[in-house]
Amino acid sequence: MNTEVVNFIKEHKGDLLENWMAAMKISSHERSLNLISDDVFKDISHEFIEVAVSNIIDSENGFNQKVERFTERVVRIGWELVFLMDGLSTLKTLVLELMQKEKDYSSEEVIELITEIDRWVAPMTNQIIESYSNNWEKTVSLQKVALQELSAPLIPVFEKISVMPLVGTIDTDRARLIMENLLSGVVKHRSEVVLIDITGVPVVDTMVAHHIIQAADAVRLVGSRCMLVGIRPEIAQTIVNLGINLNQITTTSTLQKGIEKAMEFTNRKIVVLKEGKD
């Protein structure tokens, strides 16, 4: 790189930081900035400038490590890649503007400066995109594993009675997990009645209903009864409009009613004890 550009960047880190923060605060990326406090923004901005400077003073390995740590952090707080790309573009503009304020360059020299600044930023752009993508995929993968671990547990609530609360959208992969947990849980807890609670499922379409029917059939094959509870009025209307047949499954509008029904299936009932008179 041009020695003049290198020296300028190293000597004006503080000015670049202050100007970059000011420029990014008036950008159109309010969402990214609203995710963090001003102190955190200042801290991450400082790290961003340090990464930029390390591209000209550190070894390739040292620079890559700093980029990796930086992108891991910004992915964790939810900054979008487009925000970082705009940040790099802003940094290029600032370096050129600050250099031109200090010295009167000819047109040819300005073109040379732009070329040198582009040469400085290009490796950062490529490395940040690659590192950000890797960290994003890693984060999504970890979140998916965590969701699967928490998703669709079979909870024994009474002897021979278990409940599986479902929350969120049900896709094919999650339906498979539900089926596995349901069958293994029925055997493990020796459940005679299983209540699938769909109170937290926002949409029940043909595919979701198909998966629930499959689950109920599988439960019957291992000698247990399956109930569907938490059917809201809008869900009931959707099921009717789609012509979905749930005749083989006992349904109730609430979990409480479902448990009462499950107690009857296991030859028990809930008795309200009256307080004795003094």
Rank of each mutant, 00 (worst) to 15 (best):
Ser106Asp: 09
Thr125Met: 12
Ile196Ala: 06
Met99Pro: 07
Ala152Ile: 06
Asn61Val: 09
Asn64Leu: 11
Leu94Asp: 01
Leu177Ile: 15
Ile77Met: 09
Ala23His: 10
Glu108Arg: 12
Thr3Asn: 13
Lys144Tyr: 04
Asn19Lys: 09
Ala146Ile: 12
Ser151Glu: 09
Val240Asn: 04
Ile56Glu: 14
Leu88Glu: 07
Trp20Met: 12
Ala146Lys: 07
Glu130Thr: 12
Asn19Arg: 15
Thr252Met: 06
Leu16His: 03
Phe83Tyr: 14
Glu112Gln: 04
Ser45Ala: 09
Glu72Asp: 15
Arg176Tyr: 00
Ile117Arg: 15
Lys144Pro: 05
Ala22Cys: 00
Leu166Gln: 06
Val229Arg: 08
Leu84His: 05
Leu96Ala: 13
Lys10Met: 10
Leu228Asn: 00
His29Ile: 01
Arg190Lys: 11
Glu80Trp: 03
Lys66Pro: 02
Ile161Ala: 08
Leu113His: 06
Leu35Cys: 00
Trp79Phe: 15
Lys10Cys: 08
Asn61Tyr: 15
Phe70Cys: 02
Pro165Gln: 10
Leu255Asp: 05
Ser32Ala: 07
Ile49Leu: 06
Asn126Gly: 14
Val229Asn: 00
Asp197Ile: 04
His12Ser: 04
Val74Asp: 02
Glu108Trp: 04
Val5Trp: 00
Lys13Ser: 09
Lys103Cys: 04
Glu112Met: 07
Ser89Lys: 05
Glu275Pro: 03
Trp79Tyr: 09
Ile117Asp: 03
Gln65Arg: 14
Leu84Pro: 01
Thr266Trp: 12
Asp39Ser: 13
Tyr132Ser: 02
Glu130Pro: 03
Ile178Arg: 07
Ala146Met: 12
Leu150Thr: 12
Ser131Leu: 11
Leu242Gln: 02
Leu84Gln: 08
Glu149Met: 05
Ser32Asp: 15
Asp104Thr: 11
Leu16Ala: 07
Lys277Asp: 00
Val187Thr: 10
Ala52Leu: 03
Val51Ser: 07
His211Phe: 01
Ala152Gly: 08
Asn34Cys: 00
Arg268Asn: 15
Ile26Leu: 13
Asn126Met: 11
Ser162Gln: 12
Arg73Gly: 01
Pro165Asn: 10
Thr254Ile: 05
Asn19Phe: 10
Leu16Val: 04
Ser59Val: 07
Arg268Tyr: 06
Lys257Ala: 15
Asn34Val: 00
Lys144Leu: 14
Ile57Lys: 13
Asp15Ser: 13
Asn181Pro: 03
Phe70Trp: 12
Arg69Asp: 14
Ile9Cys: 08
Arg190Gly: 11
Leu183Asn: 13
Met21Cys: 04
Gln256Asn: 15
Lys92Pro: 02
Leu147Asn: 11
Glu109Ala: 14
Leu33Glu: 10
Met263Gln: 14
Asn19Gln: 11
Val187Ile: 09
Ile26Trp: 03
Ile129Glu: 07
Asp197His: 00
Leu98Val: 13
Thr250Lys: 08
Asn7Asp: 08
Gly230His: 04
Val53Asn: 14
Asp205Cys: 03
Glu47Trp: 09
Leu35Phe: 03
